[in-house]
Structures are given as C-alpha cells and as structure tokens.
C-alpha cells in the first residue's frame, strides 16, 4: 500500500533523487562511534542540532501561554510552570535546553578546532559556524529577560550597560535594544520578545541551512 502511494507520487514528481542524495551519502569509518569509540566527539554537532530542534518546539509551545507584557509576563510564566499540566517540564526543557545547546555547541566548536577541520576548503563553513555561535548567545541573552523576574531584569540591565559602553554608537545600541533611553520596561520586553522569537531564529535558520548545505557539498573532513 505504502509502496503504491510512493510510486504514485514518484511517477509524478520524481522524488527519489531528492532524498536518496541525503540517505545515501557515505559516512566514513573515522567518524563512526560504532567503530572507534573516540569518534563520539563527532556527535556533538548532531546533538547541538537535536537540542536546537527541542528548543524550537518547546519555545513554540511556550508562546501558547506566555505574554510579553510587563504586567502579565511573570504571571503567565508562573501560571504555565505551576498550573499547566507538564508546564514544569516544557519550561524546563526550554530553560535547560538553552544551557545544553551552549555546552554542546562549545564542545562541537572545540572538536572542529582541535581536528583542524576549519582549514581549506572549509573556511566558510567555520565562519558560518561562529556566526551561529553568536546568534545562539544572542538567543540566550534575549531569552533570559522574558520571564520578567528579578534576575532577568537586573542581568539585562547589566547587559545593556555593557552594550552602551561601545565607543561612539553605544548609546544608540542601548536605545535600540531597550526601546527607551532610561527605562528598562515595557518596550524592552516586547523588543526582546520579537528578537528572541522572530529575528534571531530567522537568522539561525538561514545560517543552519548554509551550514548543512556546505557540509553536504564538501563532505566531512578526513581522518587526522
């Protein structure tokens, strides 16, 4: 039955080459932990992606309850964590996932660095990787404010002061981030929400696509 459906679709759209290319690409022995246990270091990139997927999903579900408004943000987080079934787990996944993604990405970066995999011809992919790193840190920073609790507010104050210490344009960056010259308040929260939920994820998707397409075209770096 399934085969028939597949053939029916394939006859009309010729889909075999599209997925066969990904399914059939060869995985060399030196990155396969089943053959060399030390090759588990090659799993860090995949695990980073796995946690990223969890972050995207849990984040999407969190917005079903969360409100980015100074009056209600904290209350909505308190409610979804304490009143909603499995709220503690869903918020926990997003909260701890944020840390795990940084850890896994850091380990992945170190693996690529110490195996010298960034060398010619893979320079561009390394640069895209570092940009992904920056976007992830940005997601961590903007996401930290959203529960609108004490530590969120005051850590953001410090962060924005750091941004404000950039020579010449610091004050501009500060107002752009905070939405107001002096107050960290309603406009800061909505801005951080927009950046955290739309702008940075959009950048992340584009960069991840570039990262994966480049890996697929170049193949994984050879053994040392």
């Amino acid at each position: 039955m399934l085969n028939k459906i597949y053939d029916w679709v394939d006859e009309r759209l010729d889909i075999t080459p599209i997925w066969r290319d990904i399914a059939d690409h060869e995985v060399p022995e030196h990155v396969n932990p089943a053959h060399h246990f030390s090759a588990f270091v090659y799993c860090f990139g995949g695990l980073t992606f796995f946690v990223t997927v969890i972050q995207i999903l849990s984040g999407m579900f969190l917005t079903m309850y969360y409100v980015p408004d100074v009056e209600n943000a904290w209350k909505s987080v308190y409610y979804l964590q304490n009143e909603v079934a499995f709220g503690e787990i869903v918020r926990g996944m997003h909260h701890w996932g944020a840390s795990l993604v940084i850890v896994m990405m850091f380990l992945h970066t170190l693996r690529v660095f110490f195996t010298g995999s960034y060398k010619k011809p893979r320079e561009l992919n390394w640069i895209v990787g570092v940009l992904i790193f920056c976007v992830m840190l940005g997601l961590g920073f903007t996401g930290y404010l959203l529960p609108w609790d004490m530590k969120a507010l005051f850590a953001t104050k410090v962060g924005i002061e750091i941004a404000a210490s950039v020579p010449f344009i610091g004050e501009l960056i500060k107002i752009l981030l905070a939405g107001d010259a002096t107050i960290i308040g309603a406009q800061t929260l909505t801005r951080f929400f927009a950046i955290h939920v739309f702008f940075l994820p959009a950048a992340l998707f584009a960069l991840l696509a570039a990262h994966f397409i480049m890996i697929r075209r170049q193949g994984i770096s050879g053994p040392l």
Binding site: W74, W96, D149, M150, A152, L153
Partner: peptide
Amino acid sequence: HPSPLEGPADP
C-alpha cells in the same frame, strides 16, 4: 531541577 523563577521584576 525545575527551572528557577524569581519574584517579578521590580525596577
């Protein structure tokens, strides 16, 4: 470890 939540922000 339930994710931590402090009191609401008080500027």
